[in-house]
Design a protein around this nucleic acid. Sequence first.
DNA 1: ACCTGAACACCGTTCAAGT
DNA 2: ACCTGAACACCGTTCAAGT
Lengths: 206, 206
Amino acid sequence: MPRRSKPARETYHHGDLRNALVTAAVELVEGSSPEELTLREVSRRVGVNHRAAYRHFKDKTALLAAVAEDGYRALLDAMDQALAKAPRTNAEERLMALAVAYVSFAIDQPARYRIMFGRRLNEDGRFPTLEELVGRAYAVLAGELRAGQVSRQFHLTPVRELVFGFWSLTHGFASLAIVRRLKVKRSLLDAWTRTVFAPFVHGLAR
Amino acid sequence: MPRRSKPARETYHHGDLRNALVTAAVELVEGSSPEELTLREVSRRVGVNHRAAYRHFKDKTALLAAVAEDGYRALLDAMDQALAKAPRTNAEERLMALAVAYVSFAIDQPARYRIMFGRRLNEDGRFPTLEELVGRAYAVLAGELRAGQVSRQFHLTPVRELVFGFWSLTHGFASLAIVRRLKVKRSLLDAWTRTVFAPFVHGLAR
DNA sequence: ACCTGAACACCGTTCAAGT
DNA sequence: ACCTGAACACCGTTCAAGT
């Protein structure tokens, strides 16, 4: 009587092949590098013919976009958590907490971060969800900078320019640290991040 | 009697295949994207069997490193020229001139810039020349920041941290502008760069 | 609906050979 | 010394077919 309990799964596979592929891709990429992320290898890991992936992703770029989306969600979580722990009224300190969380995220998962920021994936506007997630990250930064202005802690430079500048600083820090293999010990990284950011963030104060 | 003047070139090719390959690679990459830079296509352009490239480059990474070296030389030129035109004593203004030159370089040749900064090419320390050129770019920034401290215009934060911060800002600005396809008109870019940088660079002043 | 096999046009890289 | 042809092990992608 056992035979029956074993469902068609063995042949028809996962309830959710799409998620299985994305998860495998994220794991694979962190174990090696973005260059080694191939549709065929990901499919192999999931135990499925590489053609099956095309049921869920139009092409390789679509898989990369899914990995990037997943990454943005994780980054947004990390940013939210950092802000929840930060003091409510000190605008500079809140930016610092954001910067530390952002840089940690990138340094701890460099390949994932490179997929998120290395190539323009949404060239043809095919991935609106990805775009929306980028917009949410932007909104978090904009919210903090705007709050600093409202509480009269920051200069009244237009927020759009401030966000671009602050994001440039964090993104630049993270990606330089990744490509040039920062020689700073992981245990000292957060403090070092603060030291580097301090004079620049201080420039926002009025 | 002409026949004789035609040398073995036709078969034995360029006096300098190496340079021909690098030049072709730079042109190719700017016409498309880093992903489309292949050893075979570059060789095709130069009119040579793809195997010939291996006489001059151990592997594809070595060709990319040569392209990156070429790029760093051009970037150093652009930075030097900007500094030559900048006022001699205003440290903030000199940093701004540097930032504008740096960003322009990246925006005008995005694929080239992405090869320089996208992947860690010198993983095994195989390209000392590349490393030396990066060191020279670093030295230019360090020199300006140090000068600003000596003339008592900048705070006395350790130079190492200042350089990393300023480079983060310029690199981040450039690469975000590239991946997110900045919607700013090219003719307004230099002014916009200054607006974005102003509050942050101002933070260095004492 | 979901998955597969076989095939195509590309890669980078290696080996043995040509001038 | 410098270049090539043929081959290998990989890609992403397409077509026609299987359950």
